[in-house]
């Protein structure tokens, strides 16, 4: 079992990211459960989404919140000033951040594997959302594919095709570019 928590702001696509990621994991033969933070979402407010992935041979699932994730994905760096995004992250857990900075320049109190990708720049390049409010979810998923090592880009492309009816090709390209430009590997 592998647990992932997404942090974003309402409108950035964190909830959709968890669903697309679940679909990509399913296409790779895994059994995923994806769910948003059970609340009332508003544009701009901090939101969380979760993903719990089971190996094909597992057949008993937990249906509760995720408290100690293996991987954390942050779609918006300003959240770091507001909340402890690493809360509950396992020792040596992985954290993926949407930032142009290099992982070496980002320090956390504990020992985590830090990865970065400039998902905002990629989303703006492919005109996903607006310049002020880019939708960064598909770009971040390309980078996540590399970290998780559960699904490949083909799985992700098909998942994007099914889940994202708008600007599908641009979203696929954004994912591909993030896959190739993630730092920290």
């Amino acid at each position: 079992m592998l647990e992932v928590r997404f942090h974003g702001r309402g409108g950035q696509g964190a909830v959709v990211a968890s669903k697309v990621c679940a679909n990509a994991c399913f296409k790779a033969g895994y059994y995923p459960l994806a769910f948003p933070q059970f609340g009332v979402e508003r544009r701009g407010a901090p939101v969380q989404a979760f993903l719990r992935i089971h190996k094909p041979e597992e057949n008993l699932f937990i249906r509760c919140n995720i408290y100690e994730p293996d991987i954390i994905v942050v779609l918006d760096m300003t959240l770091l000033e507001m909340i402890d995004v690493t809360e509950g992250l396992k020792e040596n857990g992985k954290i993926l951040l949407n930032t142009p900075q290099s992982p070496e320049n980002i320090k956390f109190n504990k020992n985590f594997e830090v990865y970065t990708v400039d998902a905002t720049q990629i989303a703006v390049k492919y005109k996903l959302g607006s310049k002020i409010q880019p939708i960064v979810n598909t770009a971040i998923l390309g980078a996540l594919a590399k970290i998780m090592n559960i699904f490949d880009m083909e799985n992700l492309s098909y998942a994007i095709e099914e889940e994202i009816p708008y600007k599908t090709e641009e979203n696929k390209k954004a994912a591909e570019e993030a896959f190739n430009s993630i730092k920290g590997i």
Binding site: K19, N23, F26, A34, F35, C64
Partner: peptide, 11 residues
């Protein structure tokens, strides 16, 4: 169940 099934995606 609200959210625990309604808003949870699974195969």
């Amino acid at each position: 169940d609200a959210f625990i099934l309604s808003h949870t995606a699974e195969p």
